[in-house]
Simulated scan of single mutants.
Amino acid sequence: MAILFDLAKVLRSKNSGPFEITMDVLFHREEDYYRVKNSGVINEETICKIYNLSSDRLCSIIFFDQAIGFKVTMLREVSSGSIGDRDVYGAQQHIPLTRLEV
């Protein structure tokens, strides 16, 4: 087993507008990408569990074979920059993904 942090070349999160956060995971090697993709670990149940989300707040999980990467987009708890927002840029939300075992 390996953790996603060890397999991915880029693992980042950012705003996808003021109401969504997106996480990009890109790989240097196709075999690492397909290992993750084919494992089935990246799915609605897992993402909702590690982010403590209800399924209606998960917007999408999209694999891009041509880019050897995938993207996860979810609704923010509060809009970017509003009172109670702890991460205006959404730049610190990828951490739970880094720890996933594949």
Results as ranks from 00 to 15, higher is better:
M1G: 15
I3E: 11
I3D: 14
L4S: 06
F5C: 09
D6V: 09
D6H: 12
A8R: 02
A8E: 01
V10T: 14
V10G: 08
L11V: 12
L11A: 07
S13V: 00
S13E: 04
S13W: 00
K14M: 09
K14D: 10
N15S: 07
N15C: 02
G17R: 00
G17W: 02
F19D: 10
F19W: 10
E20W: 08
I21D: 00
T22F: 11
T22V: 11
T22L: 13
T22C: 12
D24V: 09
V25R: 03
V25N: 01
L26F: 15
L26G: 11
F27Q: 06
F27V: 08
E30N: 12
E30T: 12
E31L: 10
D32H: 15
Y33S: 08
Y34M: 13
R35P: 07
V36Y: 07
V36T: 08
V36A: 03
K37C: 12
K37V: 11
K37D: 12
G40S: 00
V41R: 02
I42G: 05
N43D: 00
N43T: 00
E44V: 01
E45W: 04
E45I: 07
E45R: 08
T46F: 04
C48M: 02
K49G: 00
I50E: 00
Y51Q: 00
Y51M: 03
Y51S: 05
Y51P: 00
S54Q: 09
S54N: 09
S55F: 04
S55P: 07
D56N: 08
D56G: 03
D56P: 02
D56V: 03
R57C: 04
R57V: 01
L58V: 01
L58E: 04
I62V: 15
I62H: 15
I62S: 15
F64M: 09
F64P: 04
F64T: 10
D65I: 06
D65S: 10
Q66K: 13
A67N: 13
A67I: 09
I68N: 10
G69M: 03
F70Y: 07
K71L: 12
V72Q: 03
V72N: 04
T73W: 07
T73M: 08
L75K: 15
R76T: 06
R76D: 02
E77P: 07
E77F: 08
E77A: 12
V78W: 03
V78N: 05
V78Y: 03
V78M: 02
S79D: 07
S80M: 01
G81D: 05
G81T: 01
S82Y: 04
G84E: 00
D85E: 08
D85W: 02
D85T: 01
D85A: 05
R86I: 11
V88S: 06
Y89V: 08
Y89M: 13
G90S: 06
A91V: 11
Q93S: 13
I95L: 14
P96K: 00
P96D: 01
P96N: 05
P96A: 04
L97M: 12
L97K: 02
R99W: 11
V102M: 05
